[in-house]
């Protein structure tokens, strides 16, 4: 079968294979045809998050995707390509720190129930493969957007009963964060771990509302359109 790989230019490779993962095919090309082909990989079992890339426009883990004849392989979007299928994830990863996606203080000897644990079980399955940042149309146009996996990680800690003070996290995600998401759900569709960052963002919105925050877009358009100082400065409702 033939596949095309987006390198500096589009390169076509012919490989003999059936029922092979894309990672296996890439390894075969590299070790038998063209040692310059460049991609990242690690565990070959869908857990290290190294080999996310796009096939026919959709994000996949190369080690979890079975190759089809005619497939077009491209690097992830929205992160700088270093070479061929390898992108620089440093910027996307930096949002975890920016969003303070960690437990604020140590929490010794808290008894968590099974229900407590289930709250963020799936969020803590995240492998940081970056597929969601590649698929995110908001991150595509706003490079300061605290994107899907970081917001999921914020929810993972905010929802954890061991987190005693999530106020800083909630404050941090008000700007370039939860309210900028369009809830398009692209992140959910491409997540290899079946995590829905969109759903987590909605939960963070509710949590924010309970903490007294509101949607700034809504407030400004509402305020700018109806009330505000263009009239007499007093609320018009």
């Amino acid at each position: 079968m033939k596949i095309k790989i987006q390198r500096e230019s589009l390169v076509e490779y012919e490989v003999e294979t059936q029922d092979s993962t894309l990672l296996h095919v890439l390894q075969t090309i590299k070790t038998t045809q063209d040692a310059t082909l460049t991609y990242a990989s690690g565990c070959k079992s869908s857990i290290c998050g190294s080999c996310a890339m796009r096939v026919n426009g959709t994000e996949v883990l190369a080690c979890a995707y079975k190759v089809q004849d005619g497939d077009l392989i491209e690097p992830l979007k929205n992160s700088p390509v270093i070479r061929d299928l390898v992108v620089d994830m440093d910027k996307a990863y930096s949002f975890n720190a920016k969003a303070k996606a960690w437990q604020n203080s140590l929490s010794p000897s808290t008894n968590l129930t099974q229900e407590n644990e289930k709250i963020n079980e799936i969020q803590s399955d995240c492998i940081l493969c970056g597929s969601c940042y590649s698929a995110c149309p908001v991150y595509a146009v706003n490079e300061e957007f605290i994107g899907p996996f970081s917001l999921t990680r914020v929810w993972r800690y905010v929802s954890d009963v061991r987190e005693k003070d999530s106020s800083q996290k909630i404050e941090t995600i008000q700007t370039n964060g939860i309210w900028d998401c369009t809830l398009c759900n692209e992140c959910t569709l491409v997540c290899p771990q079946d995590i829905s960052s969109k759903a987590d963002i909605e939960k963070l919105r509710s949590k924010s509302a309970m903490s007294g925050y509101s949607d700034p877009n809504f407030a400004s358009s509402f305020g700018g359109g109806f009330g505000g100082s263009s009239f007499d400065g007093s609320p018009s409702f």
């Binding site: 960690w102 437990q103 140590l106 929490s107 010794p108 000897s109 808290t110 968590l112 129930t113 099974q114 407590n116 644990e117 963020n120 079980e121 803590s124 993972r156 800690y157 954890d160 061991r162 987190e163």
Partner: peptide, 12 residues
């Protein structure tokens, strides 16, 4: 206990 205190999501 330390892992639990930093937030590891152990099954319960």
């Amino acid at each position: 206990e330390w892992l639990d205190s930093i937030g590891v999501c152990f099954s319960r």
